[in-house]
Design a protein around this nucleic acid. Structure first.
Length: 713
DNA sequence: GAGCACTGC
């Protein structure tokens, strides 16, 4: 072991001005603490502000109670008259569920009555629901069916600082809807008409009767819509400016003070610095668990190993330190371990990715170690390529991380860089909309009747190049006509499916190729994280299992056989009379076959949902049986935009971008190296890798996508 | 022969 000597010691300096707004509170024991929440004292004022202002920005730190209390205040003040609802959006499913449950408890109603939540695959709302918690993505979907969101009197967009694509698009849309709802219906409004017109042809069976609603309101005003944007931290000004100088109200939070400490000098090796700091805290600080923010699985696993190694070299009475890893790819049973209290006398050190920044809250944390980096996804529209890079965290992220030390008592945050480096960080993370593929978003906007995408009023405008690229892709897929308007019916059908546009297109084609059943399964599996466990898994049984499913034709057919075999197993068990617990049976099968049960369950949910959708469109779900040649031709026709040809040196050239790429080691075609393939994903990590491929005949491309390959011959 | 932060419909 290198000289990670015990004597090594890092000097930290206290930051010059203590963070004034650090007062997190413990997880509130709900009912008894309601009155003591900071927001309780400003109920009257908040209601007045909402009555006076159509748009209100509320800046509230964690622990203010805004998410649980404000909707109740509004309900009591009469904002749900005439059956109207208050919608509260969250960026994450788990938050929508837990908050709704808590509020139902506080209101002493059954979940799904006055208070409910609705997230994909799980809707607890009923006709009596007035406070509806949901994900922002779900509300966007609702807007496709009801372009004025007429059932809502108030919409609260919570955690707007998150700046997810969904939040950004939703805010832009709500701005438009609010304007439309303040005008008499007879007047021409900027969008919605076209969408509702076409809707009569393609509307979901249970969609609201939009035309009827509009007719009934003829000559009258739609009721106005109140908009409340809730955000933590620095970004309030951005939202206020976007909404024409909207009023912003601050609500005090509740957190314990967190001392911020910086290193005196920059650290050249943050893994090493992390290790030193962990032991320094362990030896010198009072009891309390440590939370370390690292960038990924590999890093976490190596720090875990290093901590274990080092523990062997210190006196036995000081070894009471328990390292635990948490990241999203970790099976949930192992994730749960970080939540159980450490054995008596032990100190936990949680090695986490960003998952611990917002998604989960671990009790007992008093110390945070923040090396100041994050792994971020970015997208290069010109090459159609994603990449994952380690980049410096933003100020907002860094504050959020430090706050994790002050939820249960005063804490300390150790930043592994000097204070002057903090000042150089970006204020906040680049909004996702500026670093992702826009084809899906643009398809949604087009379906809402918004045709001028370049001129659309985004909070942060995506680059022109990214917009053009997405428009071109949608045009190639047949979703957009030459004039840039949505094709009827294909474009509308595609916008209704909760899938990447290219997968929706694949379903439309599969309907024509008579292999819709196979394609439904394939795109469901492609829509989830890998259904195979960690491919680094070298155990013999795991390899055998993967080989058992592998198809020489490629990954798509491999996924098909995994899904089908799991399904057959389930059917057999059901027929044998033991079909009571589907989840349990599937888990057992997954374990035996080294398949990720979380992913497979998710794929099955998606399959069920999109099957319903295509049946509503009027497609007949038929199977091509054993005609895998026909199915591969359909895959080629669907994914022609992403084809690659083998070169003499064994590398591949992506036909669209001209990039030199490599087959990803997780592909079943990694060794076979067929002459021509279609693929679904192009990602740069250590190399430019293509993932999820199927072997095709290169002649199929010009035959099946002549509009795209006419010059190729 | 090598590797994937986190969400969401």
């Amino acid at each position: 072991m290198p000289s990670m000597a015990q004597g090594e010691h890092k000097s930290f300096v206290q930051n010059s001005k203590p963070n004034p707004k650090s007062a997190f509170s413990m997880r509130q024991k709900i009912a008894e603490h309601r009155r003591s929440l900071p927001i309780a004292s400003v109920e009257k004022r908040l209601i007045e502000e909402v009555q006076k202002n159509d748009i209100l920005i509320i800046v509230g730190e964690t622990g203010s109670g805004k998410t649980t209390q404000l909707p109740q205040f509004l309900y009591n003040a009469g904002f749900c008259r005439e059956g109207k609802m208050i919608g509260i959006t969250q960026p994450r499913r788990i938050a929508a569920v837990t908050v709704a449950k808590r509020v139902a408890e506080e209101c002493e109603v059954e979940l799904g009555q006055r208070v409910g939540y609705s997230i994909r695959f799980d809707d607890t709302t009923s006709s009596s629901t007035r406070l509806k918690y949901m994900t922002d993505g779900l509300l966007l979907r609702e807007a496709l069916l009801d372009p004025h969101l007429t059932r809502y009197s108030v919409i609260i967009v919570d955690e707007a600082h998150d700046r997810s694509v969904h939040t950004d698009v939703l805010l832009a849309l709500l701005k438009k809807i609010q304007r439309a709802r303040s005008k008499p219906v007879g007047e021409k409004i900027e969008f919605g008409n076209m969408a509702s017109e076409v809707q009569t042809k393609t509307r979901d069976a249970n969609g609201p009767q939009q035309n009827g609603v509009l007719k009934g309101c003829q000559g009258r005003k739609l009721s106005p819509l109140k908009l409340i944007i809730m955000s933590a931290s620095l970004d309030a000004r951005v939202f206020s400016e976007y909404f024409g100088g909207a009023k912003a109200v601050h609500v005090q939070g509740r957190q314990f003070p967190v001392d911020i400490l910086y290193t005196v000098h920059p650290e050249s090796d943050y893994v090493d610095a992390t290790l030193v700091t962990i032991f320094q805290i362990h030896f010198e600080e009072k009891p309390g668990d440590i939370l370390v923010f690292l960038t990924g699985q590999d890093e976490i696993e190596s720090v875990e190993r290093l901590v274990q190694e080092r523990l062997q070299n210190i006196p036995e009475d000081k070894r009471k330190l328990l390292p635990l890893a948490i990241f999203s790819a970790l099976p949930s049973e192992q994730q749960m371990k970080v939540f159980s209290p450490a054995p008596t006398g032990f100190r936990k050190v949680i090695l986490a990715t960003n998952i611990a920044e917002t998604s989960i809250t671990i009790p007992g944390i008093r110390y945070v170690i923040d090396p100041g980096f994050v792994k971020a996804r970015s997208y290069d529209p010109s090459k159609g390529m994603e990449s994952l890079d380690v980049v410096p965290a933003s100020k907002a992220q860094t504050l959020q991380r430090s706050g994790r030390a002050g939820r249960e008592g005063p804490g300390k945050s150790f930043r592994l860089y000097p204070e002057r480096e903090f000042e150089k960080l970006e204020d906040s993370t680049k909004p996702e909309i500026k670093r992702c593929n826009l084809s899906n978003i643009i398809l949604q906007l087009k379906a809402l009747g918004i045709d001028d995408i370049v001129g659309f009023d985004f909070i942060d405008k995506p680059s022109r190049g990214a917009i053009i690229k997405a428009l071109a892709e949608l045009h190639s897929l047949g979703a957009l006509a030459d004039d840039g308007k949505l094709e009827n019916p294909a474009g509308y059908q595609m916008s209704r499916l909760p899938l990447e546009p290219v997968y929706s297109k694949a379903l439309i084609l599969a309907n024509q190729f008579n292999c819709l059943e196979e394609m439904l399964i394939t795109v469901a599996v492609l829509s989830v994280e890998s259904i195979f466990y960690d491919p680094r898994e070298k155990r013999e049984e795991a390899r055998t299992s993967r080989n058992h499913f592998a198809s020489v034709e490629g990954d798509h057919l491999t996924y098909l056989s995994v899904y089908r075999e799991s399904d057959e197993f389930l059917e057999k068990r059901k027929a044998a009379g033991s079909g009571n617990n589907i989840d349990k049976i599937m888990k057992k099968w997954c374990k035996e076959n080294y398949v990720n049960s979380r992913s497979l369950k998710h794929a099955r949910d998606i399959y069920r949902q999109i099957r319903e959708h295509v049946e509503q469109i009027g497609f007949n779900v038929s199977s091509c049986g054993n005609d895998m040649l026909g199915f591969r031709r359909c895959l080629a026709a669907s994914f022609f935009l992403k084809a690659a040809q083998r070169q003499l040196d064994g590398t591949y050239r992506a036909l669209e971008s001209g990039e030199v790429v490599h087959i990803h080691p997780t592909s079943v075609l990694f060794r076979a190296k067929p002459e021509c393939v279609i693929f679904n994903e192009l990602m740069q990590t250590s190399k430019k890798y293509i993932k999820n491929l199927t072997r095709i005949d290169s002649l199929w491309l010009s035959e099946l996508a002549p509009h795209h390959f006419k010059t190729a011959e």
